[in-house]
Simulated assay, not measured.
Amino acid sequence: MTASVSGRSDPVVRRITTGDIAEALTQGLRDFQAQPLFGLAFGLIYVLGGISIVLCVTAFGMVYLAYPLAAGFALIGPFVAIGLYEVSRRRELGQPMSYGAIWRTVTSRGEIAWMAFVTVFFFVIWMYQVRLLIALLLGLNASFSSFKEFMTVVLTTNEGLLFLAIGNLDGAALSLILFSLTVVSFPLLLERDVDFVTAMITSVRAVVTSPGPMIGWAAIITVLLIVSALPYFLGLLVTVPVLGHATWHLYRRIVAPA
Rank of each mutant, 00 (worst) to 15 (best):
P187A: 01
Y67C: 06
G100F: 05
S4C: 11
A219Y: 12
L75R: 11
W217H: 09
G50C: 06
I134N: 07
I177Q: 01
S146E: 06
A206D: 01
V194A: 06
L178Q: 05
I53F: 07
L162R: 09
G61W: 03
I254Q: 03
R15S: 12
A206N: 01
K148C: 10
G244L: 00
L132R: 05
T26H: 13
Y46T: 09
S52R: 04
L161N: 06
Y251I: 01
F186G: 00
I134H: 11
G39T: 03
G77R: 00
C56G: 13
R14W: 01
I21K: 01
Q95V: 04
V124L: 15
P241N: 00
C56I: 15
I220M: 08
G139D: 03
R8E: 13
F123R: 03
V197K: 07
A135K: 11
R30K: 12
S98E: 08
V63D: 13
L236I: 07
E92P: 02
R90K: 12
S145W: 09
W126S: 14
V47F: 12
L243V: 02
Q35T: 15
F117Q: 14
G77I: 03
M1P: 15
D193R: 05
I134W: 04
G171E: 06
F38K: 00
R89E: 09
T182M: 01
L40F: 14
Y99N: 08
A219E: 11
V184R: 00
V106R: 04
L55R: 14
L44D: 08
V208L: 15
L44A: 15
V130I: 15
L169R: 05
L138D: 03
F163G: 09
S52V: 05
I125G: 01
F73H: 05
G100M: 04
T157E: 06
H245E: 03
G49W: 03
L132F: 14
T17G: 10
I51N: 11
L93T: 09
L224E: 08
V87R: 07
L169M: 13
A81I: 10
V204M: 10
V47Q: 11
F144W: 05
G94C: 10
A71N: 09
